[in-house]
Computed example of a mutant assay.
Amino acid sequence: MGRKTVHVSDFSGKVLQPDDAVVRVVVLEHPDLVAGPVQLEARPIEIESIDDAALDVAVVEIYDSHGGGEPRRVTLTASEFDTLATDVPMAQLLRTAERIRPPKATRKAAEKLDYATLEHAGKPHRGKITDEEAQLVRDNLDEINKRLADEGIRQIDPTDPDHASRYGFPLSDESTD
């Protein structure tokens, strides 16, 4: 018995032919997105209007007493944000404003992660996948994928040849009819 995999557009449900160009769309934020970023696939024609529909937005973090010590992230149209600057134009204000640098991740923190634990197993890393990590991923795939999704990290697909070889999942034989 053979197996045939058919890929379809996530947007239209139409079958993608092997020679079709496929566009990968990563949804980072959406009101209905509950478990972190997701990946969708589509034909280029299905998303060609996306740039025309794009909004110019400003994403700001507000540090005040309302956040309980944590910043509030707010997204608003750029033109609405621009109206907040009444002394000088927003473009000039942004050019001359004090620059901030995001905190640097320390290399030591990354080196201390134990990927052979449920807390870190399956996270992408440069090191070799140990037998312990691979076994943990195989035995707890659903739980690990849920954690990865919650953290906004790619999930492990046992049917993906790269993931299958990295984590020791059996490779399925695909054939075309």
Rank of each mutant, 00 (worst) to 15 (best):
M1Q: 08
M1S: 14
G2S: 13
K4H: 13
V6W: 08
H7V: 13
H7S: 15
V8H: 15
D10H: 07
F11L: 15
G13S: 09
G13A: 08
L16I: 14
L16F: 09
P18V: 14
P18T: 13
D19A: 14
D19K: 14
A21S: 13
V23W: 05
V25R: 03
V27Y: 03
V27M: 01
L28C: 15
P31G: 08
D32Y: 12
D32C: 12
L33K: 00
V34F: 12
Q39Y: 07
L40T: 02
E41Q: 14
E41A: 10
A42V: 00
P44N: 00
E46A: 03
I47S: 01
E48V: 05
S49E: 15
D52H: 12
D52C: 13
D52Q: 14
A53Y: 12
A53M: 13
A54D: 08
L55F: 10
D56R: 03
V57T: 07
V59G: 12
E61Y: 11
D64V: 07
S65P: 09
G67T: 04
G67K: 02
P71K: 09
P71C: 08
R73F: 02
L76P: 02
S79F: 05
S79A: 13
E80M: 10
D82L: 00
D82A: 11
T83A: 11
T83D: 07
V88M: 06
P89F: 07
M90G: 05
Q92L: 13
Q92W: 04
L93A: 12
R95W: 08
E98W: 06
E98S: 10
R99F: 07
R101N: 09
P103C: 11
T106W: 13
R107I: 11
K108V: 12
A110T: 12
K112W: 08
L113E: 06
Y115V: 06
Y115R: 00
A116D: 13
E119G: 04
E119H: 00
H120R: 03
H120T: 06
K123R: 10
P124T: 11
P124K: 03
P124D: 07
R126M: 05
T130E: 12
E132M: 11
E133H: 03
Q135C: 06
L136N: 01
V137L: 05
R138L: 01
D139T: 00
N140E: 03
N140K: 00
L141G: 00
D142G: 03
E143P: 02
I144Y: 02
N145M: 05
N145W: 01
D150H: 05
G152I: 00
G152T: 02
G152Y: 01
G152M: 02
I153C: 00
R154C: 05
R154F: 07
Q155F: 05
I156Y: 03
I156P: 02
D157Q: 04
P158T: 01
D160S: 14
P161L: 06
P161K: 05
R166L: 09
R166H: 11
Y167K: 01
Y167T: 04
G168I: 01
F169M: 04
P170G: 04
L171F: 11
S175A: 13
D177Q: 06
